[in-house]
Design a binder for these strands. Structure first.
Length: 614
DNA sequence: CTAGGGTTAG
């Protein structure tokens, strides 16, 4: 008898127990050789011919349900187009091939994990085939099927059918299937979070996977504070969080801008010995940066012994968010030097950094190098970075030219970027005409109305402005209210422009008035003189002094002595608030950090880290 | 052959 296994055998040794490889010295069986032959064919070339050749060999050797080969087969770039995909599947399911659960499971999974949308779209379609062939699903079927459905957020109906089938065949008590159900429903969007929660509530919560699925679902649905609440319940229940749980928590912290939470997660991971994997460090960098602690994010990056392109990109994004373009570009260069080739996402990071720091020439160089040096075809996001870069720098014509030469149809984001440039640089007629076209094409998008309404306000065309308002209410379109949050003693306080729901609202409003008096005393002039610089999406009708960030700052000034003030805002800071906060930082001698919808402003001694370039 | 997860233009 072999001695019992020690409790924590190294991973590679544990794996061996599940290996299908023969333990003895016998030569590998014929099926093994055939499998390897198929894989080699696919490795050598991904042309349709090679794929077909591999398939033919597969069928000839009776390997039709070999998961390894099938997965590679459907991951081959030849399967990007339905033209090859369909005959392939038809050949696989030919009359001479017996259909069993194993084959269908493998087909579902291979399609669901294919890098090609056309293959992923039809993954779930293999399940009906199973029913038609009177084959019973096994315990592997529903985890695969439900995950395939999760990738189709546009057609939740398929997922609902899959859930019904899981019920019918009695697999909903299975933990694996139930966890995937939670995941699937939360992928269908906010309206299905209740369904996810229903599944969650009905199952035993003995595994970290169940909790992580629900926590991740809340984050995905934009309910990050519920995610944090659920994490606290999880701790109370005694289930030990693992790495994935903590990743969800970090995403929630990043979303909420909850710096203390993000830092706590960093310590928690240390304390619980969860292990700082590369993935976890990447998430930590991202969360710290999005909570305004860029230096902390850089410190985590510096401490990593192994870094992937995602780590580099995360730290470059972190620096870009604070407008530290030179440092971001420096890291991008260092990344290339140490032999990590940038991918398309890394280029978005470095282009954003250039854009936010006014480094137009550098940005142009990087954009050109994408294709020339790395063979990466720029996507619409990269063109968007360039349009933004020219626009911010006041080169509105160049921005427009870029849109004209783009090889793809400009999307609303591109147009809105242009409009922001027009507004920032006084090109109001151009901005207005672009916005009008945009409204014709996308009448349901709230931001477009607000944009046009603000253009009218800037040009003092009040009649047109009120027409826009009427049009919005007629269509039932609501403006997202400006909202700012601050964390104080582990509690999150939320402020909405002009609202009076905070228990201390009277004191806060008195404080805001006092701030206004102080600022007037030192010569700060409100609003209108800077109106052309205003990029804000917020309604200008309300008094500028009741903007949510001012309320939040007043609250923190009231409640704390000379500490740092950190505010997270859902929209962009308007020009008046920006100018006012600069003064506040001087008059009250406080460092004030405001997280925008897109970046950070660090106010100190009357100036801002963005150098008024935003 | 089983579940939950990291960076992405404004």
């Amino acid at each position: 008898m072999p001695p019992p296994l020690p409790p924590s055998l190294p991973r590679h040794l544990r794996r061996r127990r599940f290996s299908t490889a023969p333990a003895s010295h016998h030569p590998p069986p014929a099926s093994r050789l055939a499998e390897q032959h198929c894989l080699r064919l696919l490795e050598r070339s991904s042309t349709p011919a090679a794929v077909l050749q591999s398939l033919a060999f597969l069928l000839k050797s009776g390997l039709n349900s070999n998961p390894l080969v099938l997965t590679r087969l459907f991951a081959s770039s030849a399967c990007a187009a339905p033209a090859l995909l369909e005959p392939l599947v038809a050949a696989l399911l030919g009359p001479s091939v017996p259909i069993d659960a194993f084959l269908v499971n493998t087909l579902i999974r291979a399609h669901a994990t294919s890098p090609f949308a056309s293959a992923r779209l039809c993954a779930a379609a293999f399940f009906p085939l199973m029913l038609r062939s009177a084959v019973l699903p096994n315990k592997f079927t529903f985890p695969f099927l439900l995950k395939a459905c999760a990738a189709l957020p546009g057609s939740p109906g398929v997922g609902l059918q899959a859930h019904a089938a899981a019920l019918k065949f009695g697999f909903t008590t299975d933990q694996y299937a139930s966890n995937t159900l939670i995941h699937m429903y939360s992928c269908f969007g906010g309206g299905f979070l209740g369904d996810a929660r229903n599944v969650f509530d009905r199952m035993p919560k003995s595994s970290a996977v169940t909790w992580s699925a629900m926590i991740g679902g809340y984050v995905r649905g934009g309910l990050s504070s519920d995610a944090v609440g659920l994490f606290r319940e999880m701790q109370a229940s005694g289930v030990r969080p693992d790495e994935v749980t903590v990743l969800g928590l970090l995403a929630a912290a990043a979303d909420l801008g909850a710096l203390e939470l993000a830092r706590w997660v960093g310590r928690f991971v240390e304390r619980e010995g969860i292990g700082k994997s590369v993935t976890l460090c990447n998430a930590l960098i991202d969360a710290l940066a999005k909570c305004g602690d860029v230096d902390g994010a850089v410190a985590v990056f510096q401490g990593m012994e192994e870094r992937t392109v995602v780590s580099w990109t995360s730290v470059i994004d972190a620096l870009a968010m604070e407008g530290r373009g030179k440092e971001a570009v420096g890291l991008f260069e260092e990344m290339k030097t140490v032999g990590v080739p940038p991918d398309d996402v890394a280029f978005i990071g470095v282009l954003t950094a250039c854009s936010h720091a006014g480094m137009v020439d550098e940005g142009r160089g990087y954009f050109d190098s994408m294709k020339m040096e790395y063979g990466i075809e720029p996507k619409i996001e990269h063109y968007g970075c360039m349009v933004d870069m020219f626009g911010r720098a006041g080169m509105v014509e160049q921005a427009l030219d870029f849109v004209r030469v783009m090889p793809m149809k400009p999307n609303p984001i591109i147009w809105r970027t242009l409009v922001a440039a027009c507004r920032a640089h006084g090109r109001l007629e151009l901005g207005e005409s672009i916005t009008k076209n945009l409204l014709n094409e996308y009448p349901a998008h709230e931001a477009n109305y607000v944009m046009l309404s603000n253009v009218y306000a800037l040009t003092q065309r009040w009649k047109e402005k009120s027409e826009i308002r009427r049009e919005m209410s007629k269509r039932g379109i609501k403006k997202v209210p400006g909202c700012s949050i601050v964390e104080l003693d582990g509690e999150v306080h939320e402020f909405i422009a002009g609202d009076e729901s905070h228990p201390q609202w009277k004191e806060i409003y008195m404080m805001v008035e006092e701030m206004a008096r102080e600022l007037r005393r030192i010569g700060h002039i409100s609003a209108t003189s800077e109106v052309l610089l205003d990029l804000d999406e917020e309604d200008k009708e309300g008094a500028l002094w009741w903007h949510s960030e001012k309320l939040a700052i007043a609250f923190v000034l009231l409640r704390t002595p000379g500490t740092q003030v950190r505010v997270v805002k859902n929209l962009r800071v308007c020009a008046d608030c920006h100018a006012a906060i600069k003064c506040i930082s001087r008059v009250y001698n406080r460092e004030i950090i405001v997280r925008d919808r897109s970046r950070f402003h660090r106010f100190k001694n009357g100036s801002c880290s963005c150098n008024d370039f935003w």
